[in-house]
Amino acid sequence: MVKIDLRSDTVTKPTTGMLEAIMTARIGDDVFGEDESVSELEHKLAALFNMEAGLFCPSGTMTNQIAIKCFTQPMDEVICDQTAHVYRYEGGGIAYHSLASVRLLNGPRGILTAEMIEREINEENIHYPNSSLVVLENTVNKGGGACYTLKDIEPIHQLSKARGLKLHLDGARIFNALVATGDQAYDYGSYFDGISVCLSKGLGAPVGSVLLGSKEMIQKAKKIRKVFGGGMRQAGFLAAAGIYALDHHVNRLSLDHAHAKVLGGVLSKTKYVSGVMPVETNIVLFDIHESFSTAGIISELNKRGILCNATGPKTIRFVTHLDVSAEMIEQTADILKNLIP
């Protein structure tokens, strides 16, 4: 039985073209600044997003945590949504690495507004932590792949600038957002102090994220990366995969979005699903009807070759990606329609 893995877009395998790029990569010792492929990737993404410099790291968690440490001091406070990856899924890193507290907001599907943020910025008072950083996530994982547009981001940028706060983007699936909204990557550099760009999700690279920012910020980030144990040597093999992904796997993301919409449409018509979150990109979140067991539905899907995860007591997630073909989507749709007689 062929497995259809919808657990995450992190499960992809390198394509034939990507493997060739990896095998022919120009490499050196990146800790010495001598890996040509790493430098090319960093410069390519910095130019694409209109930022001064970039820093290649093993994971998006590392790029996010480095950025937070760059932009905060102990006793500061980070403002983010209560579903944010930097808060929920990075091991308490904000507290552990940066000695900062977190002010959690509750945006619709994880999308924050300037009005929401402004109410939560602390005034100068010895009793309060210093509000110093806002973190946005695009797309919002727990929001079912919900997207910020640049129109959404601009007032948050203006507020942050006026109040002296830094603004960081956890761009875990930023290219999915760009494809869905039609916004341009280059414009993002005007709004953010830091951007984390993940290469190992929808773009299909095996490893890595790049942190973007000013030259001064990235120089500081490089030292923090070293302290975190993220300095890599012949990392050009990994960077070459990222370069290939940027050149070949961005435009095809619209296909993943179309596949996700097909699954969302089918799920909305089944008797065991009580609701499907609006599908904007490649993530489908759906709630299981109270008369059915979430674990039972996942087990039945697994028996039929469909792998997926629960993200809550009654919520299951599907994520489409480049290793899920149109034929697999058709097969999955048939299974979903007939899962419960």
Rank of each mutant, 00 (worst) to 15 (best):
V2I: 12
D5K: 07
S8W: 08
D9N: 14
V11E: 02
L19F: 03
D29G: 02
D29V: 05
D29E: 11
E40N: 11
L45G: 01
A47G: 11
G54F: 09
F56R: 03
C57H: 00
P58N: 07
G60E: 12
E77G: 07
C80F: 00
A84K: 10
H85W: 01
V86I: 15
Y89G: 09
E90Y: 04
G93E: 01
N106G: 13
I111D: 01
E115R: 10
I117L: 11
E118L: 03
I121N: 08
N122K: 12
E123C: 04
E124S: 12
Y128G: 02
P129N: 14
V134R: 04
V135D: 09
N141S: 15
K142F: 13
G144A: 06
C147R: 03
T149I: 12
R163A: 13
D170Y: 00
N176F: 07
A180N: 10
T181P: 10
T181R: 08
T181I: 11
Y188A: 03
S190R: 15
S190W: 07
S190M: 10
D193G: 13
S196H: 06
V197G: 06
C198Q: 10
C198H: 14
K201F: 13
L203G: 01
V210W: 04
L211I: 09
G213Q: 03
S214A: 10
R225D: 09
R225S: 15
K226T: 12
V227K: 14
G229W: 05
G231C: 11
R233D: 12
R233Q: 08
G236Y: 03
I243V: 15
A245S: 15
H248F: 11
V250D: 02
N251A: 12
R252I: 14
L255P: 00
A258E: 13
A260P: 01
L263D: 00
G264R: 07
L267K: 05
S268P: 01
K269T: 12
Y272I: 04
P278T: 04
P278S: 09
N282E: 09
V284A: 01
L285M: 07
H289L: 02
G296L: 11
I297M: 14
I298N: 00
S299R: 11
S299K: 12
L301H: 00
C308Y: 03
A310L: 04
T315S: 14
L322E: 09
L322Q: 12
V324H: 02
Q331I: 08
Q331Y: 11
A333K: 02
D334G: 06
L336E: 10
N338C: 08
